[in-house]
Amino acid sequence: MLRSALSAILALTMTACGGSSDPVATTSNELHVFNWTDYIDPNEVKRFENETGIKVILDVYDSNETLLAKIQSGATGYDIIFPADYMAEQMRELNLLEPIDVAKLPNGKNIMPSMMDVYWDPGRVYTAPYMYGTTAIACNPIDTYCPTIKSWHDFFTTKDPKVSVLKDEMEVVSAALRAVGVAGNDLCTTDKTKFQAAEDLLLGFKPAIIESDGATERMLNGTNTLEHTWNGEVHRMRPQIPDMIYIYPTDGANLWADNIAVPVGAPHLENAKTFINWLMDPKNIAAESNFTGYDNNIVGSDAFMDKSIRQDPAVIPPADVVSRLSPAPNCPQEVRDMYTQVFTTWTSSQ
């Protein structure tokens, strides 16, 4: 009795693993996904597994640079990655992405027309759209400083003791450049005086925390009341702090778009295409939006998205602020070095 029960359990676990006695079947039925932390719904992954019979193995990273370092070091065995716009372009330039003709996949027709000819992938050969969002300022209404923050300049000169900033040189320095009058389409300027002005502004700014992780948690437990953060985080704070304010600075904010792509040499190329096609289905991508709190760029997904997301001005920018948004800059090395210099000078002056 006990024995048959045991063997039944064993058989079950074996099938769940794809049958370890049959390595060929195992390899052809897996998909190794490398994603940002907390950026895909585990229940949806299960549904994908049930619908397609492909077993998903998930691994996570915390920044575009970590992703690049891992992929560039070669033979990592990942089939699916989620690079942001500028990173997708750099990976493509380094020949790290597999051309899979995303637009020609059955669900490729669902890509929002305005997101077809993006600078990092004209015609969508390498990448499918995933979530997109903005990086701006969140303020808890209990903070009396909230009404004084209208722009990045206000933010970087605030005396608010509970302010936190992302540990991200591109986000911090581009915001500081906007604060000193650089336009959103000119963030890769080679004008050194602009960087000097941004550095001078930052040197007078001493935030309580410089960290990207745990922004939501710190806002909820009251450590911070004013944060430089991503819009989806604000949406995730709403259950506890419903009237959390998301400020679109008058001097502009960065718009970013994450992508789904396949690294070159992916061992399960066909499964990867199946997965990408599956995520371009309006219903499936809507489920991911509901989980992550970010909007997506798939036509028809609105119908399946939670009302709370579609009506959240933090997730869907109101019409009057859209003109303030511009893509996160992807600058050449010489400019990027100035970003690094300003950021290093600032963090080591704290």
Partner: peptide, 25 residues
């Protein structure tokens, strides 16, 4: 220094790590 110092109390290893990731140098 990263987790408890709030990213502000830079130690030399934080700067080294920064150069292998974001600064890419």
């Amino acid at each position: 220094s990263d987790m408890l110092g709030g990213g502000k109390t830079n130690m030399i290893a934080n700067v080294i790590a920064l150069n292998f990731t974001q600064a890419r140098n």
